[in-house]
Nucleic acid binder design. Structure first.
Length: 610
DNA sequence: CACCCGGAAGTTAC
DNA sequence: CGTAACTTCCGGGT
């Protein structure tokens, strides 16, 4: 009967709990109220094994099933402080399973769950699956990401995947919570597992009777064909699965009509977990009022997120990278000085979403010069950045004016970064930067396209009719797109100090000229400042002198003159003709020249600022 | 060592 | 097919 739904994706070898058996002992295949005292003990033992929790002293719950069912949650907590919640929930599921035998689950497909209520549920809210700590494990560690059923999944609100795992909070109750989580991750059928969820939900209405059928047990090699799902025990399964669905659905379906795509976003996922104290061992509010939350178990959270996204190799390192992308979108920021502590920058319910995910509120203002840049988000420790400067911008040079005009007219489009040519082997950004700088002199045109998004380089494809695009993917883009914006960078004839090169370098190196430091203040390049930026380069790091027309007076400007740099290098070192590799390589001296100009100005600004 | 940062490039779902 | 939102990897920092 309580055969558990197969599906362990992650199962470390050193599981401390029973990972082989997920079936409730046969003697417990009756309503808990009918359990004898001995059977209650059997159940407790089963729970401790199944949920990877420490053994429950029999004297803590020394009663028969009838008395057991009368225990309130608080009673459980009192008797078993560590895992009372878990046991209570598990018992409730057993109890409610019996009840729900008479109640088809078909209605669960809607956003509002009709799952039997758990005592600690808010009446008007769907039951959160996360409150159902039924954890099951199976011996099979096979990952079946390729087995995703292709049948329609109309009721599935979360990411499609076939299997997922989850850990009850109690499983991280050990000394090393992280390791505990990793080593005891078990499978909750249906949790975060929409694929099977749907199937089971669909089969539930026609297969209620299978609950008590021992033949319903499926082992770990469960076939994934929908037809086989019919033979699964469905009631509890469906309840839980639906509960899971509910948990990851938006609280307000009216504002999130697309319930079929919910909880695909990391911030949403985290927020959902935060809503449930059951997961406080993974992540909890540090200050709900201030929307500050703390990740208590980074590894566990990452595992869970990985399950949600069907990424079995998810780590906190990666998850945190995704979180860092939120900085610039003003969705989440790091709380400076507090490890594993972040803050929602706005009420999650107010976070606007793009077609597929969160975006800055004023997305149309983001692209190239908005205040929403990475430097602004370089840490909560940073005081609010000064972007209120209302200095009257100097007149623009014709070239810049043209560019500016183009930029203004293309804010809604995605900016395209110049080139991916001669990508250096390493990931050293300074080398990369330098190689780009070198490359640009070979071309007459550079195209940019404006837009927003995560601003990663992959979203900035090179588009220019006269540009050689070595990357395959870029070639494809080139064929299908036309650059909405052309920035003429006459680098061939005037590679060193033309205004356009300045722009290019700025955009190149920094993705965009986003902020600068001046008068002990960190200025964000907002609308009022961008003209000033372009024309005057008033930042100390982008000062006018650094683009002086007379390179002889500014030796540091060698960085902007690849040709000259190379010539100098050759004459100095005696090298005849530098190879491509050498062109891409940046020496320490060169790095020292170019970094302060193109990269480290951020650090300058921040350090002076702080 | 664990966490943090952000660039760069690849992946995936829509 | 294009893009948002990651994921993956990395070098470097605290």
């Amino acid at each position: 009967m309580f055969n558990i739904w197969p599906s362990t994706i992650y199962q470390p070898p050193q599981l401390s709990c029973n990972a082989q058996q997920t079936v409730l002992p046969a003697s417990l295949a009756k309503h808990p109220q009918q359990w004898t005292k001995h059977e209650v003990g059997v159940w407790l033992k089963w729970c401790s094994d199944e949920f990877c929790i420490e053994p429950i002293p029999p004297d803590r719950i020394d009663m028969n099933g009838k008395a057991l069912c009368l225990l309130k949650r608080s009673d459980f907590m009192e008797r078993i402080p560590k895992n009372g919640d878990l046991l209570f929930n598990a018992l409730q599921k057993l109890i409610q399973n019996k009840v729900s035998l008479t109640s088809p689950m078909s209605s669960m497909c809607s956003g509002g769950a009709t799952v039997p209520m758990s005592p600690f549920h808010i009446k008007t809210e769907p039951i959160s699956p996360l409150l159902h700590p039924l954890v099951f494990t199976s011996a099979n560690t096979q990952t079946t990401s390729m087995h995703a059923p292709s049948i329609p999944r109309p009721c599935v609100p979360i990411l499609p995947r076939t299997q997922s795992t989850i850990l009850p909070p109690s499983c991280s109750n050990s000394i090393n919570s992280n390791k505990s989580f990793s080593n005891t991750v078990s499978t909750v059928p249906g949790i975060l597992s929409p694929a099977s969820s749907t199937v089971d939900t669909e089969s539930a209405s026609s297969d209620n009777g299978s609950v008590s059928d021992p033949e319903g047990h499926e082992n770990d090699s469960r076939p994934t064909e929908p037809t086989n799902e019919r033979f699964l025990p469905t009631t509890i399964k469906t309840e839980i699965q639906h509960s899971i669905q509910s948990a990851f659905q938006p609280l307000n379906n009216n504002t999130r009509p697309d319930s079929g795509t919910e909880c695909r976003l990391l911030w949403e996922f985290i927020h959902q977990l935060l809503q449930n104290p059951m997961f406080s061992q993974l992540v909890c509010w540090e200050s709900e009022k201030e929307l500050i939350f703390r990740i208590n178990n980074p590894t566990g959270l990452a595992h869970m997120w990985g399950k949600q996204k069907n990424r079995t190799n998810m780590t906190y390192e990666k998850l945190s990278r995704a979180l860092r992308y939120y900085y610039r979108m003003n969705i989440i920021k790091k709380v400076s000085g507090k490890r594993l502590t972040y803050k929602f920058m706005q009420q999650p319910s107010t976070i606007q979403k793009g077609q597929r995910g969160a975006k800055p509120h004023n997305k149309c203002d983001i692209p190239l010069f908005s205040s929403s840049n990475r430097f602004q988000y370089s840490g909560l420790k940073d005081e609010p950045l000064e972007d209120k400067t209302q200095q009257k911008p100097p007149p623009l040079s014709p070239a810049i004016n043209e560019i500016h005009h183009e930029l203004e007219n293309h804010r809604h489009l995605k900016r395209q970064s110049p080139t991916d040519i001669s990508k250096p082997s390493g990931r050293n950004s300074s080398k990369y930067l330098q190689s780009k700088t070198l490359d640009i002199e070979n071309y007459e045109h550079t195209a940019y396209q404006l837009g927003n998004g995560d601003m990663s380089n992959s979203n900035f494809k090179q588009l220019s009719p006269n540009f050689h695009i070595p990357s395959t993917s870029y070639e494809k883009s080139k064929a299908s797109k036309l650059p909405p914006l052309m920035v003429r960078a006459n680098v061939t004839n005037d590679v060193k100090y033309s205004p356009d090169v300045k722009l290019n370098l700025g955009v190149y190196g920094m993705h965009s000229p986003l902020s600068f430091h001046q008068n002990n203040k960190h200025h964000v390049i907002n609308d009022s400042l961008k003209q000033q930026y372009f024309e005057g380069m008033t930042s100390p790091t982008f000062s006018r002198s650094q683009f002086n027309d007379d390179p002889q007076d500014e030796p540091e400007d060698l960085s902007f003159s690849p040709k000259k740099q190379r010539l100098d290098s050759e004459s100095n070192s005696g090298k005849m003709s530098p190879s491509d590799e050498e062109q891409q390589h940046i020496s320490k001296e060169e790095e020292n020249n170019i970094l302060p100009l193109l990269i480290n100005y951020k650090k300058t600004a921040i350090s002076t600022n702080s």
